[in-house]
Computed example of a mutant assay.
Amino acid sequence: MPDTAFAIAPSPLTLAGHGVTLVPLDASHVAALEAAAADGELWRNRLTSVPEPGQMAAYVTAALAGRDAGGMLPFAVREDDSGRIIGTTRYHDILAPVARVEIGYTWYAASWHRTHVNSACKLLLLTHAFETLGAKVVGWRTDNYNLTSQRAIERLGAKRDGVIRHHALRRDGTVRDTVMYSVVAGEWPEVKAHLHYQFSRHAA
């Protein structure tokens, strides 16, 4: 195996810590995710991929097909105090020969926006990617108009790689530019320390 590859192959697992648990996504989560998406009517945001009412089963089926094809690893997000499924996230665009993975398809019920949840999920996913899988780089992509997402990614310590022009369709049929970000393995210790510092401030 070349030293550019993952140390171990990504596979379904549960990640837990900092008040959240990421469990492998499956069809049993459809109803809970429908309820989470209804909290804030998240599908009305043209810049995200949250499915409209009645489309969650197809959304989960597509995610599981991506898992079976080897390009995705989707999770349901459970908030530990309530025990509720409040959203979803996943690894995607998994490129084993170069040990690259991206984090995306992330959304949470509106009640959990601007809380510890997003930072907790990202810390779990980044730690697993760099310290268990042996990833060389973790990436993100977002809509050029989704400034909230861009700020959240930048707060993690990710670097902006650039913009891919005229790259992907939005739900309303318009074409977006895609902003790309990444953290490389050598930056992970500092990013990890920063995330733990953020949690210590939140708990104080």
Score class of each variant (00 low, 15 high):
D80V: 14
W188E: 05
V175A: 02
D3V: 14
D161A: 07
D26K: 15
E79Y: 10
L124Q: 08
A58D: 09
W112V: 06
G83P: 01
V137W: 03
T88N: 09
F130C: 09
L13D: 07
V117Y: 08
S11A: 15
H167W: 01
E131I: 06
Y105H: 12
D161E: 12
T115S: 14
R160T: 09
H194D: 08
E34P: 04
T132M: 15
W43H: 15
Q55C: 03
L13V: 11
K159Y: 08
P12C: 10
A37G: 10
Q55R: 14
L169V: 01
L169N: 02
L133I: 06
P74F: 00
G186M: 10
R141V: 09
M180A: 13
Q150T: 01
A32L: 10
L124G: 04
S111Q: 04
L195K: 00
V77N: 07
V117I: 09
N118Q: 08
G173V: 05
L33Q: 07
G70R: 00
H202Q: 14
A65T: 11
P53G: 06
T61E: 14
S119L: 14
A110Y: 04
V137G: 05
Y145Q: 15
R160L: 11
W107S: 06
N144S: 12
G134V: 08
R67V: 03
P74M: 00
R171P: 03
A120S: 13
V20K: 13
H18Y: 12
G71E: 10
S200M: 13
A120N: 05
A16D: 11
F199C: 08
A110D: 08
I8V: 15
S11T: 14
A110V: 07
D161M: 14
Q150F: 00
V20H: 06
E102T: 08
A168S: 11
V183R: 04
A5G: 12
V179F: 02
A63I: 02
G83R: 00
G162F: 09
A7I: 15
V184T: 14
A16I: 12
T142G: 00
A37T: 03
L195H: 00
